[in-house]
């Protein structure tokens, strides 16, 4: 569980990037932070892991103030996947990379247990373990980064634009894996993402930011249907939502092409019956 209480943050000699943000994430939630460039999304997720300390307000993880403990101590419970996997990867093989993360935070479990854990994770991600990370594609490197974070079984997963620069298949691979962690192990997920289709497909809750403030907080489809809110936050809703809004009553639930087609057919059926 993560709580932000009236959190504000300003970078040195700049105006505030996050202002008076308050929300609370329960265990097992899958939330996305939406907003235009410069809305304060990345700053907010950095604050959540204590990589930045709030100028005012408090961030609590499982009730403990992040200002009172170090980020590295939290790594066993909070995993952070960055946009650029190359900043994380530092070993010559995928196996060593996964083991590096494990040894850093789960060293007390003993080498044998860690080796077993690494094997299991590599198998799950279909890596042999002998691959050299820097000869893999960007998408594959992002999977290596994700594998080494998931290996330590964090309770909370923070994602900062995890799919930028990836192609469609790579994006699905990463996001499907994260969804499984969320559903099977109740891992709390919070992500910053610019691809609204990805947000619609995977996240359940949306936090909308603009100018450093939290504008709205609610279920994903409802947030996207609030045209006034989308305008204020400079967000373009996903295509099927936008189409549903244009078509009006009866299309509220049609947020995927399949559901849209079903809605069209059932309305057609009713029309024919009359």
């Amino acid at each position: 569980m993560i709580e932000l209480e009236h959190v504000s943050f300003s970078y040195a000699d700049q105006g505030p990037s996050v202002q008076d943000v308050t929300f609370r994430l329960e265990k097992g939630e899958f939330a996305a932070i939406l907003g235009a460039n410069g809305a304060g999304k990345t700053t907010t997720v950095r604050l959540m892991d204590g990589l930045l300390k709030p100028t005012s307000g408090r961030v609590l993880i499982h009730g403990a103030d992040t200002a009172k403990s170090s980020v590295s101590e939290r790594a066993a419970r909070v995993g952070f996947l960055f946009q650029n996997p190359d900043r994380q990867i530092c070993k010559n093989t995928v196996r060593e990379e996964v083991l590096f993360g494990l040894r850093t935070v789960r060293g007390q479990d003993g080498e044998e247990a860690l080796q077993e854990r690494a094997d299991a994770v590599l198998k799950e991600f279909s890596f042999t373990g002998e691959e050299e990370p820097f000869s893999l594609s960007r998408g594959q490197r992002q999977r290596v980064a994700l594998a080494s974070i998931l290996a330590v079984e964090p309770e909370i997963l923070i994602l900062d634009e995890p799919t930028t620069g990836l192609d469609y298949l790579e994006c699905c691979q990463i996001m499907d894996r994260i969804r499984r962690m969320n559903e099977e192990r109740q891992v709390t997920v919070i992500m910053v993402c610019h691809d609204m289709e990805v947000v619609l497909d995977y996240a359940r809750r949306a936090l909308v930011m603009a100018g450093g403030r939290l504008l709205a907080d609610g279920p994903v489809p409802e947030i996207f249907r609030d045209t006034d809110l989308m305008e204020r936050a400079s967000i373009l809703p996903p295509q099927m939502i936008a189409l549903g809004l244009r078509l009006g009553a009866g299309f509220e639930r049609a947020d995927s092409p399949e559901k849209m087609a079903e809605t069209v057919l059932s309305l057609r059926g009713k029309e024919a019956a009359r």
Partner: peptide, 28 residues
């Protein structure tokens, strides 16, 4: 492994379900 716009997918799904060829849509 190449994605298509959702409106294009809608064209395809509707063509299948209605049994009649629908135009390929590329925008809203």
């Amino acid at each position: 492994g190449v994605n298509c716009p959702r409106v294009t997918t809608l064209s395809r799904v509707l063509s299948e379900k209605t049994g009649a060829e629908q135009p390929v849509c590329i925008n809203l």
